[in-house]
Write a protein that binds this DNA or RNA. Structure first.
Length: 140
DNA sequence: CGCTTGACCGGAA
DNA sequence: ATTCCGGCCAAGC
């Protein structure tokens, strides 16, 4: 059994998981490439630092190859903007049709429209990474 | 098979 | 808010 075959299988798993999570994003909400990536554990045999550096990009690759039932338009970059490419205008039109608001810099307010994610229970059930709770800012 | 480009991100100027 | 860089992968010529 070759290592290469294993890697292909892991990549396929990664893509399937990306699509599964993306399908959960509700209409009228968005989520970032990096956010989705953060839910997926580092595959065996991959250097964790390399994984952290590239996983968001892999999510982009997964979205480019996504099946028709995946709401790809709801996945945007960490700046709250639509990544420039052919089809970006169509993505913006789809999001506006979902009543998502763009500011004067063509940016989406992630505080307002950002999806919170699948929830820790669901993530545990699927052996995914439960993100750290946001720290309580006691001085506020 | 080698080379180039890319739906990314975080940190540093 | 802008630009550049390292990361050294994945997909498309």
């Amino acid at each position: 059994m070759s290592d290469l075959e294993l890697r292909d299988e892991q990549r396929d798993d990664f893509y399937q998981t990306v699509w599964m999570i993306a399908r959960m994003i509700p209409k009228g909400a968005v989520c970032t490439y990096g956010q989705i990536a953060g839910y997926i554990p580092c595959p065996q045999g991959i250097d964790p630092d390399d994984y952290k550096a590239y996983r968001a990009r892999w999510v982009g690759s997964a979205m480019a190859a996504s099946p028709g039932d995946v709401p790809w338009q709801r996945v945007i970059n960490s700046q709250g903007k639509i990544s420039i490419r052919d089809g970006a205008a169509r993505q913006q039109a789809l999001l506006k049709a979902e009543e998502i608001f763009f500011d004067e810099w063509q940016r989406i307010d992630l505080k307002k429209f950002g999806w919170n994610g699948p929830g820790s229970e669901w993530l545990r059930e699927h052996h995914l990474v439960v993100p750290d709770e946001p720290e309580q800012l006691s001085f506020l």
